[in-house]
Nucleic acid binder design. Structure first.
Length: 264
DNA sequence: ATGGTTGGTAGCCAA
């Protein structure tokens, strides 16, 4: 089973890109972030025509996440628990049936948090990470295959940036940010891409500005965390970097994992 | 080098 996370940076601006990629990559489950669309305007018909079930958690203008799946959804949950006042659409969970029991897949878009001096934005990021850790801890107790996939807006280590020195003042690379990500992982998750390779220069995002893609000035901020039950079925992770060179690309590329699971 | 680019939206904001 092929599961992918991709920050698409505007699903309506990228629908041709998305359907073409779905055709060539043929993923089973796709976690999208930054759909920048309300649910009513999500281009679901084009995607359903390719054989996918579509569940969205949209918002006007910004944010928004979705899960596309060839498997039928047994259950869908929208929003990260822990703060009823949080109206930002950054979290959706789907549950599926496989030949090895339940599979839970989350598409998450973790807050950016910049600028760090802002009285709201960076604290919101850290609070969101605390909520995620609490939620993940509860889900791990279920002892099911769980995949937390998304744009974490976290550069875990200096080797995850081409120029780490340029990110020292950035919310994506703050010590508190990195520590919160480590705390989450250390609950018992396997980080799929780093379980596959420890090579440097493995990036998932290149800014549109200043020729970042051409210079390979990237960062690795899109991650898939696997529960022990998912890690036991894990094959390998890979990047679909070629889509970054397409016309009108997203600034992120798809990150793909293979799990030895089949739809039940 | 405090630049540069993009999407969504309608003024700039978020990234």
């Amino acid at each position: 089973m092929k599961i992918v996370t991709w920050n698409i940076n505007g699903v309506r601006a990228r629908i041709g890109n998305l359907t073409h990629w779905l055709g060539e990559s043929a993923p089973d489950i796709v976690c999208l972030q930054e759909i920048k669309s309300v649910d009513e305007q999500f281009p679901r018909a084009e995607i359903e025509a390719l054989g996918y079930n579509v569940e969205t958690h949209g918002q006007k203008g910004f944010n928004g996440v979705a899960i596309l799946s060839k498997l039928r959804f047994d259950e869908v949950n929208r929003g990260l628990p822990g703060d009823d006042a949080d109206e930002q659409a950054r979290f959706i969970e789907g549950v599926f049936s496989t030949d090895h029991g339940a599979l839970r897949v989350v598409s998450l878009y973790l807050p950016n948090g910049n600028p760090i001096e802002d009285p709201v934005k960076f604290p919101y990021k850290l609070a969101w990470m605390e909520r995620l850790e609490r939620w993940a801890s509860e889900r791990l107790a279920l002892e099911e295959a769980l995949v937390l996939a998304g744009d974490y807006n976290v550069i875990p280590e200096p080797t995850d940036a081409r120029h780490p020195e340029n990110w020292l003042g950035d919310a994506l690379f703050q010590p508190q940010t990195r520590q919160a990500f480590r705390r989450l992982k250390n609950l018992g998750f396997t980080e799929a891409l780093r379980a596959t390779t420890d090579a440097p220069d493995v990036y998932t995002f290149w800014d549109y500005q200043a020729g970042a893609w051409q210079k390979n000035n990237g960062i690795r901020i899109d991650h898939l965390l696997l529960s022990p039950e998912a890690a036991n079925r894990f094959g390998s992770a890979s990047l679909e970097k070629h889509v970054r060179a397409w016309e009108k690309p997203s600034d992120h590329v798809p990150v793909t994992i293979d799990l030895r699971l089949e739809a039940a």
